[in-house]
């Protein structure tokens, strides 16, 4: 046992496990912000009265939601970076990190949009009617009455999207972000195959530790902020 522990400690000294998790957290952080913005815009398009915007929003969601994230990430590297020769930075690490954030953003924005739209559907008809009755046009009504309630109703699905985003940030490996967890785990196992279970459990528990608080917070917030009706 002592032997195992010392081997395990040595492994941690040689590999930057926390650093890898930090990369995933950073990916998640930026992609969460951008996909929240893009997703809100898409949701507004889908609930607007303007047919062309509705159509564009629906098309975006249906296309991106049905495309595997791995294809989007591979596309970022092979098609956008390699074939179209678009660079986000001259530094490789920054370049691929930004591509991964873009890939994660465009994919998860579709789910954020659906989450917000489902939130909009929790707002009772009377609220919109009341807003119109006091003379608010569409945008002010959306901003002041509908969206604040919709975001509260959307907390649970948004939280689930955030959890999915955190776990999906490991797919950044397909966009050549080589410092994140899935790549590091593979490297560690390949050179220390006798510790395969311990290494996997380390990474798995790391994700459990990150995911459970988000889940608890989501449940807490959605209960606390739910509009009582």
């Amino acid at each position: 046992m002592g032997d195992f522990l010392s081997q395990f400690a040595e492994l941690f000294a040689n590999y930057d496990v926390l650093g890898a998790f930090w990369v995933n957290i950073q990916l998640t952080f930026w992609a969460a912000i951008f996909s929240l913005i893009l997703g809100t815009v898409l949701a507004l398009m889908r609930i607007s009265p303007i047919a062309s915007l509705q159509w564009a929003g629906t098309a975006y969601v249906n296309i991106l939601r049905n495309t595997p994230l791995t294809i989007i990430m591979t596309f970022m590297f092979l098609a956008v970076w390699t074939q179209l020769q678009i660079r986000m930075s001259d530094d490789f690490a920054t370049n691929f990190f930004r591509f991964a954030v873009i890939g994660l953003t465009v994919y998860h924005a579709a789910f954020v949009c659906e989450a917000i739209r489902s939130g909009v559907n929790t707002v009772p008809l009377g609220q919109a009617e009341a807003a119109r009755a006091i003379g608010l046009p569409f945008l002010p009504a959306a901003r002041l009455i509908i969206l604040p309630q919709a975001f509260r109703g959307a907390i649970a699905p948004l939280g689930n999207t955030l959890i999915a985003l955190l776990k999906n940030s490991t797919v950044a490996a397909a966009a050549s972000v080589s410092t994140e967890t899935s790549t590091l785990m593979r490297e560690m196992i390949e050179s220390n195959s006798d510790l395969i279970y311990a290494i996997f459990m380390t990474f798995a528990i790391g994700f459990v530790i990150l995911v459970i608080p988000i889940g608890l917070l989501t449940t807490y917030l959605s209960n606390r902020l739910a509009v009582r009706r």
């Binding site: 049905n66 659906e114 939280g159 689930n160 988000i214 889940g215 608890l216």
Partner: peptide
């Protein structure tokens, strides 16, 4: 269709649970 359709720290799904919501 994203993965976790239910609330993670789940209470046994009442009618208002996240599957119905999303």
């Amino acid at each position: 269709g994203i993965g976790n359709p239910t609330v993670v720290a789940g209470k046994p799904g009442g009618p208002g649970n996240a599957i119905a919501a999303t």
